[in-house]
Design a binder for these strands. Structure first.
Length: 716
DNA sequence: GACCTGCTGCGGGATG
């Protein structure tokens, strides 16, 4: 019997109706796993390879053949928008099978939720936060809802793995298993995984099932990339006055092509779009420009998504990471990235957004910078983010994607899950708490001792209390926190002011603007007419000109050593890359000259001034931190280490002292106990204020240092 | 600390 024949009849009809000639390879492979094994399944194939259908076709068939007594499939996604998007697709597939699909998230009415509670069946689509709320507020109903749950499908798994939100999710799934006694088969979907084993391990967490990741050999689309570099207009050489500006270039690149212009900051997105509109106006050409980021209202973002999907016009949308996930945007012809993407994974995800129809993805990377004065230190004359970008492209071509860093000590989430557990259960003895939570995959590295310390601290600050029986319940302070609806999420949110033109919400700002000030939001200029402090509303009317945007700053990421090594290769060899434009070639040549002058190819230590040295060992963030903290101990007189990535700048030492210190590290068995960690080194987290200091340091050291890698790398 | 992501249950008032 062929795979097609095994599918439920209404699915076969659906396939005919949609004119599919055959099932995709990954869909056949997924059916094999679901029909013939009881393993978990990881579907890790490129964008537009039919992953969603690969998961749902066999799962729905099973649901049809062996109906469940409750909800049979739990689908979890990181975004409400993704749930809404998938809802329409799945609903069509199930129309004739009498299998209901229910959305369950914050925008869904109580009526719809109650309807499902009366007769739990079919497929439930939700978010980690809604699942948290269900387990906390309506545990009995949740048990009824999922008493016969067979499958859990997690979309965009890479978005969860290695993140606090993913730790929360995997903990919730395990709590649900314990409540219902069912261990559903888990299916993970992602187009961007560099570390299949790590992802399998995460997906399996607490199921005691194996995971199968079918290797279908599906190749990702051919990609055409281009990198170009500009100096700011004002800094261009005088005889080149006719040279067109950065934005004219950006305009030409997107002209007549449906595209996304990605940036790493909201303010930059706004700036790009305002300037593109300006160029269009000057040329008397149509305004096809839109904006999509986290401060644009949900309704306006939906409008942008819909326009991108349905319109025949060559629309151009400026976006941050908000358009990186799998919301359907139709066929895009070109992707532009202004500045360097954060990782190969992000680059790959953005690239995958284009070329669905043509089969060729197109992406242009654009850089603009001020010309530096000649006298600056050599390492400040190197545009590191430009070099990193070439490194990421090269690594992408080598099929490399960063591995996930499993978090061994997620104490903030352990606090959160402890509070949630106590809230839903009422009272629990210390033994039950420890047995229930520490046995979970999410907290498998946490020791009894550390948990005891956390609980003692929570008693002290009144978040939990002891009862006469010796059990724990929530304390007064703890109840305040767990009772607030902000508790369901494990990430922090700023106070936001709603920007409104009449009754229409344009978006939000994190600070209150005074009347008569102007700013840009959604690619348009606004003037504040009225503020309503109490209800957090800012009323605006249309304004002219290009006033400033309202966010600033750029952030940090954990860099991997492999990226740093590639960067070294790029600036110390003379290999030319065919995808560099003229400006980019020129800039790379300049940088290489600077690097050669400083002897970066061979020198580990370079002199900046007689008592200041730079160390260039090309280490990733975690290994570099390890080196830094060990030097703190070995060179106690060292006054100041400027972490001028990718170097370590060391002051108040002699070259010999520094060389001896590196020599010592190479020859001796240094460990984490040789660190002196600076006082301000701490991981950020919404609940870390409720975790004792030394546990936070333990968490920090685990996440942000890697002494083993450091030793290996500097001993090569 | 850049960029994202999420949200209960109630009570009061309007509407059919």
């Amino acid at each position: 019997m062929s795979t097609f024949d095994k599918l439920a009849p209404f699915i076969q009809d659906y396939i005919y109706r949609n004119g599919w000639e055959e099932l995709r390879e990954i869909q056949v492979a997924a059916c094999d796993v679901i029909f013939n094994t009881d393993s978990n399944l990881l579907i890790a194939t490129p964008t537009a390879s039919g992953k969603t259908e690969a998961a749902f076709l066999p799962v729905i068939t099973k649901l049809y053949n062996e109906p469940c007594e409750s909800v049979g499939v739990l689908y979890i996604a990181p975004l409400k928008a993704l749930i809404n998007d998938q809802f329409a697709r799945i609903e069509e597939l199930l129309r004739e099978a009498y299998i209901p699909v229910t959305k369950w998230h914050g925008d869904v009415s109580a009526t719809a939720k109650n309807k499902l509670l009366k007769k739990p069946s079919g497929i439930l689509q939700t978010t980690p936060e809604s699942l948290e709320a269900m387990l906390m507020r309506r545990k009995e109903q949740a048990v009824k809802l999922f008493s016969d749950l067979r499958f859990i499908i997690i979309d965009e798994v890479h978005n969860f793995i290695g993140e606090e939100r993913g730790t929360q999710l995997i903990s919730l799934l395990e709590r649900l298993q314990k409540l219902t006694g069912m261990i559903p088969v888990r299916i993970g979907l992602s187009a961007t995984l560099g570390d299949i084993e790590g992802a399998e391990d995460w997906l399996n967490g607490g199921t005691e099932r194996k995971c199968i990741t079918p290797d279908t050999g599906v190749k990702r689309r051919r990609a055409v990339v281009m990198v170009e570099h500009f100096y700011e207009f004002a800094f261009q050489e005088k005889d080149k006055k006719n040279e067109i500006s950065f934005y004219d270039n950006l305009y030409e690149l997107t002209r007549g092509k449906k595209s996304i212009v990605f940036s790493n900051a909201r303010s930059e997105v706004e700036k790009n779009i305002v300037n593109l509109k300006d160029v269009a106006k000057k040329r008397g050409e149509p305004d096809v420009f839109m904006v999509h980021h986290g401060s644009i209202s949900a309704s306006d973002r939906e409008f942008v998504e819909e326009q991108m999907r349905l319109s025949d016009l060559p629309l151009v949308t400026g976006a941050t990471v908000t358009l990186e996930l799998g919301i359907d945007l139709g066929d895009l012809e070109r992707i532009i990235q202004v500045g360097c993407p954060k990782s190969v994974a992000s680059l790959s995800q953005r690239l995958g957004r284009s070329g669905r129809r043509s089969g060729v993805s197109e992406m242009c990377f654009l850089f603009e910078e001020e010309k530096r004065s000649e006298s600056t230190e050599f390492y400040k004359a190197i545009n590191w983010s430009f070099i990193k970008c070439i490194a990421l492209i090269e690594l992408y071509r080598e099929n490399y994607i960063e591995p996930v860093l499993p978090e061994r000590y997620p104490f903030g989430i352990l606090y959160h899950q402890t509070m949630s557990f106590l809230y839903s259960r009422g009272e629990a003895s210390p033994e039950v708490l420890a047995q229930s939570l520490l046995s979970e995959y999410a907290f498998r590295f946490v020791t009894q001792e550390d948990y005891k310390e956390l609980l003692r601290y929570l008693l002290k600050i009144g978040h939990i209390e002891r009862t006469e029986n010796g059990g724990f319940i929530l304390g007064t302070e703890g109840e305040k926190i767990a009772n607030h609806y902000d508790f369901y999420s494990v990430f922090e949110s700023d106070v936001e002011y709603s920007v409104r033109e009449g009754s229409h919400e344009i978006g939000t700002l994190t600070r209150l603007m005074q009347p008569d000030t102007t700013f840009v939001l959604g690619g348009k200029s606004w003037m504040v007419t009225e503020i309503d402090k109490e209800n957090k509303n800012i009323y605006v009317k249309s304004a002219e000109g290009k006033p400033p945007t309202v966010w600033d700053g750029t952030g940090e990421v954990i860099e991997h050593t492999r990226v740093l090594k590639k960067m070294k290769e790029i600036i110390t060899t003379d290999c030319m890359y065919p995808y560099l434009g003229d400006g980019a070639k020129k800039r790379l040549a300049e940088i290489r000259q600077v690097a050669a002058g400083a002897g970066l190819e061979t020198k580990e230590i370079f002199e900046i001034s007689p008592d200041t040295y730079g160390i260039s060992l090309w280490l990733g963030t975690r290994a570099l931190n390890s080196l830094d903290y060990i030097l703190n101990k070995l060179l106690p007189d060292r006054k100041f280490a400027e972490p001028y990535w990718p170097f370590l700048i060391v002051k108040n030492v002699t070259k010999n002292e520094l060389m001896d210190a590196l020599d010592y590290i190479r020859k001796n068995d240094v460990t984490e106990s040789d660190y002196i960690v600076p006082k301000d080194a701490k991981t950020f987290g919404k609940y870390n204020d409720f975790v004792p200091e030394n546990l936070l340091i333990k968490q920090y050291v685990d996440r942000y240092t890697d002494v083993v890698e450091m030793k290996e790398e500097i001993s090569l």
